[in-house]
């Protein structure tokens, strides 16, 4: 618990803070100082509780839920890419794009969902073994998984940094699993306390793996969010670098397809439209 404590000592100074708004240069307050005679005003101790970590966690959870609940429909283009990297295995060999596919995704409450394939590029003919789909819901669990009420108790959170950026107080909150026996990642999130939404997240499994036989480690996953229409925070980019375990790489390389030990996954979410209205016929055609 931390409490910001300020003492105004009226030794001839009365301070009035006046909120002001300006169109071009936002100003939070104007200090209007009037000199008064010493001792004419009593001393006041002003206490202002700083938002606690628990409060942040609770509000983020509520903020994410609020964000999800206000969305009635979503339309976006999703481009997903899988890249094999050889940096660690064969120095100098260029990364190779395994797959890149683009979909137009439509979602509408209560339960309408449709994906339309726009383009698919792969280094193999008729390769259809990699199928990537969106989650039909409006929520973005990949960004908020650690803050969901039911998973929060499994993580330990700490406030790492605070930034004041353009009228937004951004908290950087780190999280790590409470128990080493749980196959959960560590990471950090950037929280905009204006809306209590997650604006960016990074997580990783660097010191241990959720599935050691398949994945050696996950160096870094990045979830980036941006504002659409000035108010909707949505995922715009997603990255992950995975180092596959030796046994699974060796097994996979028995086939005709060569698999690199390091694989990058990335996704771009673009051309967002939120709450613009989607005709039900769009979904009927997809069934």
């Amino acid at each position: 618990m931390s409490t910001a404590r300020a003492t105004l000592v009226a030794l001839g100074l009365a301070v009035t803070l006046t909120a002001a708004a300006h169109a071009s240069t936002p100003v939070l307050a104007v200090e209007d100082t009037v000199r008064l005679a010493s001792g004419s005003l009593p001393e006041y101790v002003v206490r202002a509780p700083r938002v606690t970590l628990d409060e942040i966690l609770r509000r983020v959870s509520e903020g994410e839920a609020r964000r999800d609940s206000l969305m009635q429909d979503q339309v976006f283009t999703r481009i997903v890419k899988v890249v094999y990297r050889y940096d660690a295995d064969r120095a100098g060999k260029q990364p190779k794009r395994k797959l890149e596919q683009a979909h137009r995704v439509f979602k509408k409450r209560p339960d309408h969902f449709r994906e339309i394939l726009l383009r698919r590029q792969s280094d193999e003919k008729d390769s259809d073994d990699v199928e990537i789909s969106s989650n039909p819901g409006m929520g973005e669990q990949v960004a908020s998984f650690a803050f969901e009420p039911r998973s929060r108790s499994r993580f330990r959170f700490t406030i790492r940094e605070r930034h004041w950026v353009g009228g937004h107080v951004v908290y950087v909150v780190a999280f790590e699993p409470r128990s080493k026996a749980d196959p959960l990642p560590s990471g950090q999130v950037w929280i905009d306390t204006n809306d209590y939404v997650i604006v960016r997240e990074e997580f990783w499994y660097r010191d241990r793996s959720p599935a050691p036989l398949f994945i050696e480690r996950i160096d870094r996953c990045v979830v980036e969010r941006s504002r659409v229409d000035g108010k909707w925070w949505v995922i715009t980019r997603l990255f992950g670098r995975v180092r596959l375990a030796g046994p699974i790489t060796a097994l996979a390389n028995l086939g005709k397809t060569r698999v690199s030990q390091t694989v990058d996954f990335s996704a771009l979410y673009t051309d967002w439209q939120v709450n613009r209205g989607i005709a039900d016929s769009v979904f009927v055609a997809g069934k």
Partner: peptide, 8 residues
């Protein structure tokens, strides 16, 4: 205070 687009 920073400019409006500072967060972006």
């Amino acid at each position: 205070p920073a400019a409006d687009d500072s967060l972006d």
